[in-house]
Write a protein that binds this DNA or RNA. Structure first.
Lengths: 233, 233
DNA sequence: AAAAATAAGTGTTAATTTGACACGAATTGC
DNA sequence: GCAATTCGTGTCAAATTAACACTTATTTTT
């Protein structure tokens, strides 16, 4: 029943750009390759797509295998397919980027894979075209986070405004005025103030907030700019 | 030298969602399949990736084959890879969306492929998961065009403001106030007013404008929203 | 030749949003 | 109880946005 006889078949892999926030800056989770080619060099976590899997399934499986986490924010980024991007054999790479709460991931799984978190500006060189993938992922993260309340995926359930601001400042490598920042963030009605404070990071303590998950899902697509609200397709 | 012995290899295709603007509404270019499966049904234009081609190369080739056009706006959209999306054999589809000036495409090439332009709201049902692809492409077009001066790719070199407004109204299925629209569009400094008018579409005639291609490339990435201008990565 | 019809082009105002800016409050360590 | 630290908040001026209506140029009709 194979009718497309003459066409070439290719290997297809998934590679994940995994971001985490350590409370100070944005980090990326990399693994040290345990096999040739490029053994010992740093690379993104990836794997081949299995016969019964969609690309999304494969990305979910790979992410779970490395971090132990389910229900992580995961989004297809781009497919890389230069004929010689893998010197062994032509391989398509469908890349995904993931945002995880760094406190939830399971370190022992990462150890199995020789994985390590790197602050983005101290990241080592990666194999193949993985540097390009990371660059694209960072650009997309900046792009989307400017328009959608995405960065909450990097934070624990309860977080403070100063922490949120530090996260934004890290992603955009910029400083914000905290008065304007909190006004803007709170005006979205996405945050619910808690009664308790985080006293670990300052003498005075900063109030915790939680995401209003209902509003979160509704407002995620909130659109900005030129266009009056369009009717759905 | 094939080291990834145990992995499955897959067919990999490119499918193109091709948009054009006929002066009234947004159109999509579809082809009628000349082979089984699904012979006679409507589908996106696509083709298999060849051994020496990147996915971008394949998309460019396929687009040129159907329309005769080079230098078209073409952007990778998403990769679809459900195991059974093609009933004959598992095939990955890397989709691209293209914006073309409908007046420049070469009709005879389209005729070879039994291609036809359809206004989006009169589009027939498509094979496989192509409906889903079109839906995603429309969403992305709306998304990007709200933030970037993208829709000019659909217009001829010289165009009038009323035509531009009709295009936006068609993409967003909404009406705009023409005073606010022209103020906003002109404030970008992307348009250069010409001295001649289009007299075909009204008694009074509307001035032609051209894109300021220098500013166009510079301002394309112009960012909106929450974030003060970040430093480049 | 005057009048009617059509679509283009333009300006004002009020409301909202933004960015710049500084100080008092709470707590801890000395 | 004093000093040091960081949290939390308010004002004002400037810029941006949305709402709104009339005049101009031209062609067609009478």
């Amino acid at each position: 029943m194979t009718k497309y006889q003459k066409q070439t078949r290719l290997l297809a892999a998934v590679d994940c750009i995994i971001f985490g926030f350590d409370g100070h800056e944005l980090n990326i989770l990399l693994i040290q390759r345990g096999f040739e080619p490029e053994r010992g060099k740093w690379s993104l976590m990836g794997g081949f797509i299995q016969p019964d899997e969609s690309p999304d399934d494969a990305a979910t499986r790979i992410l779970k295998g490395l971090t132990g986490l389910d229900g992580v924010y995961l989004e297809q980024l781009h497919t890389f397919g230069r004929p010689n991007r893998d010197p062994i054999e032509r391989t398509l790479s469908i890349t995904y980027f993931a945002l995880i709460d760094i406190q939830r991931y399971e370190k022992q799984l990462s150890d199995e894979y020789h994985a390590e978190w790197f602050p983005l500006h101290k990241m080592p060189n990666l194999i193949f075209d993985h540097n390009e993938m990371v660059k694209m992922a960072r650009e997309k993260l900046r792009y989307k986070a400017a328009l959608h309340p995405l960065l909450f995926e990097l934070l624990p359930e309860k977080f403070t405004l100063p922490l949120l601001q530090t996260l934004y400042e890290s992603v955009y490598d910029t400083q914000f005025d905290k008065r304007n920042f909190s006004r803007k963030v709170l005006s979205t009605n996405l945050l619910i103030k808690q009664n308790d404070k985080d006293k670990d990071n300052s003498r005075k303590g900063a109030y915790y907030y939680k995401l209003d998950t209902k509003n979160y899902k509704t407002n995620f697509q909130a659109f900005l700019s030129i266009i009056p609200i369009p009717r759905p397709l």
